[in-house]
Structures are given as structure tokens and as C-alpha cells.
Amino acid sequence: MIILQALVFIVSAPFLSGLITKIKNNLRMRQGESILQPYYNLAKLSLKSEVLSETTSWIFKITPYILLASSLAGALLIPLFIYPAPLRGIGDFLALIFIFSLGRFFLSLAALDAGSSFGGMGSSREMFISSLVEPALCMVVFSIFLQFGSTDISVFCGAHQITAASLIGAVALFLICLAECARIPVDNQETHLELTMVQEAMILEYSGMRLAFIELAAYIKQMVFFFLIAQLIFPISLPAKGNFIGLLFWGLWYSGRIFIVALITALVEVSLAKMRLFRVVDYLGFAFLLGIIAVICAVIGV
């Protein structure tokens, strides 16, 4: 079951990214690349040979493994289609945050390893953004905790009532997700302009299969966030047994809600421009504020 969940994540995570890109392109009245383009990219990268910078050290070499391992480990903590999650005993929501930050820590180090200014720039900005994300994320977790009485992810992933607290929490989590997954108002995945890039600047020196690992890790992390947001807004219970049609509809809705989040992301990306780096402070401050409001709602019991 664990392996199945891991495989589902690895297989379906790039699809989400391709979907977002496709929606964005269509909204911009373009034909756009295929939805499967991320897979092609990954395959292409895996087949290519690799160039390593001569200034780099072992940190640079092991980072992709750590990053991908941490993303996938985080993904295994959430109950994708099994209740409770197969590895629930390993960690809770807080642990998930810290596991993701483990990968980020190493990626930022690796960015500094090659010794180019781009890497440093990306590393510095990434740590800046992620450190401001932490309090907002913590607030969201706290609001969820107040509603469900535990930081265990499996607890709130079942069916539950949609409350104001969880809705506002989900909005805050969505803002955080945009920042964490290098999406538009915070970062732009489509550009390689040194003044604006964050994530792309960090992985500039990577190539070949290691780059594929890093990209895959980013896809998985994005999917984890989408799943959590979807779970907060559209809670769903387990299907009734036996009924095949019911099961099918359940499955459609189960994955469909994640696509809805992806759709919203695409809409946001199309309609907004990237912010200046220091506006991100206000942006994440707003997310933090939403988190506080969610907590207050949870305290009142709305």
C-alpha cells in the first residue's frame, strides 16, 4: 500500500503541473504544450548526460536525493486513499512541514555550492520566503488543530463539516501553497530572468537526472499541498462498499476536487503579475492574518 501510494504520487504529480500549464495557455488563447509535457521533460532529462560544476562538493550531489526523499516522505504521511494514512505513526502535520523544510534546506545549500551569483540569489530569496511562510503555515495548522483536536493529518482528512474556520484556513493554505510551490505572485516558473527568479535560480547548475529528481520533488510537494487544500474545502467520506457506479463517481469527485484546486491556481496565475520580492512580506503577512482569523473562527466555533 505504501509503495502504491508513492507510485501514485510519482505518476500523477507531474500531470497536475502539466494541467495547470495547459489551462494557463488556453486561457491566454494559445495552443500550448501537451498536458503530458512534464513527463516528456522528466524522461528527456533522465536520458541526458550530466554536467557538474567543478566547484561543487558532495552537498551538491546528494541534494537531489534528499530533496526527493523528503518530498516523497511528506507525501506518504498523508492519507491519499487509505484511512488512516499508512505511515501516520511516523509523523503529523507539523512533522510534514519540517520534512519539507529539510529538502529546502539542502536545496538552498546546493544553490550556494556552485559559487555563482544566481545560486546565492535564489538561495537567499528562497530562505527569505520560506521563513516568512512558516508562521502562516503554523497558524493554519493551529486552526485545524483547534477544530479536530489533533495535528494528525488523518484526523481531518475524513468527512467533516465545512466550517468558516476551515474555509479561511484553506484560503490561507492556498496562498502559502503558491509561495511554496514557486507559483506566480511570488515566483515565476516560466522565466529565467535573474532579477525575478527564485526556484529556477537555485537549480540553475543542475542538469540530467538530478534535475529530473528536483523537478519531480517539486511536483510532489505541489500535489501534497493541493490535496490538503482540497481536503479542507471539499471533505469527502469513504465510498459505500460494493456499488461500482458509486465507487466510480466517488473516485471522480475524489480526484476532481484536486483538479479544481489546480484550476484555481491556474486562474490566479493568469490573472496576477509577479510581485516584487519585498511585497511578498505583505502577501505572506496577509496569509498569516487569514490564519489568525481562521484560528479566531475556530475558537468561536464557527
Binding site: 546528494i62 516523497l72 511516523i90 503529523d92 489533533s150
Partner: peptide, 18 residues
């Protein structure tokens, strides 16, 4: 409800995946 954290398993998971 209970919350869980298991460091040896977590470490093992990370190491195995890596």
C-alpha cells in the same frame, strides 16, 4: 486525539527513499 511522531521510522523512511 493522539498525535504521532516516530523519529527512528522517519529517519529510516528518509534514508530508504534517498
Amino acid at each position: 486525539k493522539d498525535s504521532y511522531l516516530s523519529l527512528p521510522y522517519l529517519a529510516a523512511l528518509l534514508v530508504i527513499l534517498g
